[in-house]
Simulated scan of single mutants.
Amino acid sequence: MNASGLCDICGKPDVDHVCDRCGRLVCERHYDDGHGVCTECATELGLGDEHVDPDDLPNDVDIYRF
């Protein structure tokens, strides 16, 4: 689905998807095609992989530990 606006997660243009769960407008990078949800919802639901992209971390943070 093509939508207009900015990605609700990273703020970049070229939004391509709408999350089926929360309705966020997200870019290809922040959409889980297999589940039809954004990466935020996929994380909340325990879906997807455990890989953390360094570009998604705030400045001056090297890794998240839970």
Rank of each mutant, 00 (worst) to 15 (best):
A3K: 13
V52F: 13
L57A: 13
E28I: 03
V26K: 10
R24S: 14
C7T: 03
I63N: 04
C19K: 01
L45P: 02
G48N: 05
C38E: 05
I9G: 03
V15K: 05
D20C: 01
P13T: 12
D20L: 02
R29M: 04
R65F: 08
T43I: 04
H35N: 12
S4E: 15
V61W: 03
C27G: 09
R65W: 11
D56V: 04
L45T: 01
V18D: 04
S4G: 02
G36I: 04
K12T: 03
G46T: 03
D56F: 08
G46V: 07
D20K: 04
I63H: 11
H30P: 05
R65P: 00
D14K: 12
V37T: 08
H17F: 15
D49F: 09
R24A: 15
R29A: 14
C27K: 05
A3F: 04
V15D: 09
D55H: 10
Y31N: 06
D8V: 00
R21V: 04
I63V: 07
F66W: 15
D62G: 06
D20G: 13
C41N: 09
V18I: 14
V18Y: 06
G34C: 01
E44A: 13
E40R: 07
G48D: 07
T43P: 00
V37C: 13
P54Y: 00
D60F: 14
I9W: 00
C38F: 00
P58F: 05
G48V: 05
E40Y: 01
G34T: 03
C41F: 05
E44P: 01
D33S: 12
C7R: 07
Y64P: 00
H35C: 02
K12G: 08
M1A: 10
R65I: 03
V61H: 07
L6D: 12
V52Q: 08
G34N: 05
F66I: 01
C41V: 06
C38T: 01
G46S: 08
V18Q: 13
C41R: 10
R29Y: 08
G46E: 09
C7A: 06
C22H: 00
L57F: 06
A3R: 09
C22P: 01
R21Y: 15
S4Q: 15
G11D: 09
V52H: 11
L57H: 09
D55F: 06
V26Y: 07
L45M: 15
P13H: 13
V61F: 08
K12F: 00
L47I: 07
Y64S: 04
K12Q: 10
P13S: 11
C10W: 03
D32A: 06
Y64E: 02
L57P: 07
P58S: 06
S4I: 11
G46P: 04
C41H: 08
D32Y: 06
H35D: 07
C7F: 02
V18S: 10
P54M: 03
R21I: 04
D62I: 03
A3G: 13
S4A: 09
H30A: 02
G36W: 03
D20T: 05
R29T: 12
E40L: 06
C22S: 03
V61I: 13
C10I: 05
H51N: 05
V52L: 11
C19P: 01
D8P: 00
G46Q: 10
L47G: 00
E50K: 12
C19M: 02
